[in-house]
């Protein structure tokens, strides 16, 4: 064999190995997740092979479980408020960081980003201690406040890159044409940052919806969905309906992620068509 053919063979082997690795990796990542929808349609209370046949019973059971639906409602409430609140805060923060020269900018940014790096269990316990010291009753509001703390960094990160990416003279041009700072924000900055705002809303919603530890410490008598599910896992009879709910949430997350990515790409191509004055 010539050395050239040896090299080609080596390369083929390399490609093959890489492909195998990628497939293994995907299986490792997604196989457990796929068990959820699979067993949610399985006609047996026990999660075990072989499968027993198709049923929608668990979905019916799920819809009849008021406590579970109540927890889902709680989570949606918290998630939506957190998404809106942290995106607004993140937008203000991102605007300040990208547009104004201020002393200690790095330190302030680091402080805002810090909750990302503190273990949630520590955050949860310390916020719990704070509220009990203040005799403040635990509720969905305390959960939402805790979640906002960890969601603002996500919103900041998304929106800062968005704001950084577009030509500041666009905002100056608006001022120059007679609009004040507020109208400039409304007519120029906001429409251009819109895709970033949308992805920030989605991202922070998902982070909150999914969060367990902080919610566990701060939810009091009104559990969010993850907290509720955890407490119900003690009852094996209730497991199948949780699989049904899990499968639905999985589906919704996929739709949301695809939608967020679509928004982001649309934003990018807008910017490209804008000849470089748009957004990255």
């Amino acid at each position: 064999m010539s050395s050239e053919r040896k090299a080609a063979a080596r390369q083929r082997r390399g490609v093959w190995a890489l492909g195998a690795f990628a497939i293994l990796y995907l299986v490792f990542l997604y196989l457990p997740v796929l068990f959820l929808p699979l067993f949610s349609f399985n006609d047996s209370r026990f999660i075990a092979f072989p499968l027993q046949g198709f049923t929608l019973a668990w979905y019916e059971e799920m819809l009849a479980d008021d406590a579970m639906l109540n927890a889902l409602g709680n989570s949606l409430q918290v998630g939506i408020s957190v998404a809106i609140l942290s995106t607004i805060l993140g937008l203000l923060g991102a605007k300040a960081v990208t547009r104004y020269a201020m002393p200690g900018k790095e330190a302030i940014t680091a402080f805002i980003m810090l909750p990302l790096f503190i273990p949630e269990i520590i955050l949860g316990i310390s916020i719990l201690i704070l509220w009990s010291a203040l005799d403040f009753p635990l509720s969905l509001m305390t959960v939402a406040m805790g979640h906002t703390l960890i969601c603002v960094p996500f919103a900041m990160a998304v929106l800062t890159s968005r704001l950084d990416g577009f030509d500041q003279s666009l905002e100056e041009a608006s001022l120059d044409l007679g609009e004040n700072a507020w109208m400039t924000f409304w007519r120029v900055t906001f429409p251009l940052v819109m895709p970033g705002i949308a992805s920030s809303l989605l991202l922070t919603f998902i982070v909150s919806f999914d969060e367990f530890l902080i919610a566990f410490f701060l939810s009091g008598t009104e559990p969010t969905l993850p907290v509720f599910m955890w407490s119900e896992l003690r009852f094996p009879s209730k497991l199948p309906r949780m699989l049904a709910l899990g499968a639905l949430i999985l589906l919704a997350s996929c739709v949301l992620v695809v939608f967020a990515e679509w928004l982001r790409r649309r934003g990018v191509s807008d910017a490209e068509r804008g000849g470089g004055y748009g957004i990255t």
Binding site: L170, E172, P191, G275, Y277, G278
Partner: peptide, 9 residues
């Protein structure tokens, strides 16, 4: 403006 700053939207 030097970059013209045409509003892309």
């Amino acid at each position: 403006f030097q970059s013209y700053a045409i509003f892309p939207h």
